[in-house]
């Protein structure tokens, strides 16, 4: 079943058959990446609109070091 793709006795339909599990894997990973992108976009918008933290620190990414130090102490 598994043969080198440059072996001409390995028919092309055999190669196509061998790619199918990988194509399914690619579909699943594509869905996971899509979900990840949507989750990131959602949180990014939340951060920009300052909906993030209940304690009102705002976006931690854009916070000045002093306020970050205060927040951690």
């Amino acid at each position: 079943m598994l043969q080198h793709p440059e072996n001409p006795t390995n028919t092309f339909s055999n190669i196509v058959e061998a790619t199918k599990p990988w194509l399914r894997g690619r579909t699943i990973s594509g869905v996971l990446i899509l979900v990840g992108h949507l989750a990131f976009a959602y949180h990014f918008v939340l951060m920009l609109l300052k909906f993030g933290r209940a304690d009102g620190v705002g976006p931690t990414l854009l916070a000045k070091p002093e306020s970050a130090a205060e927040a951690s102490s």
Partner: peptide, 8 residues
Amino acid sequence: HQTADMAR
């Protein structure tokens, strides 16, 4: 020489 393209 390197590939099966023509053999196919």
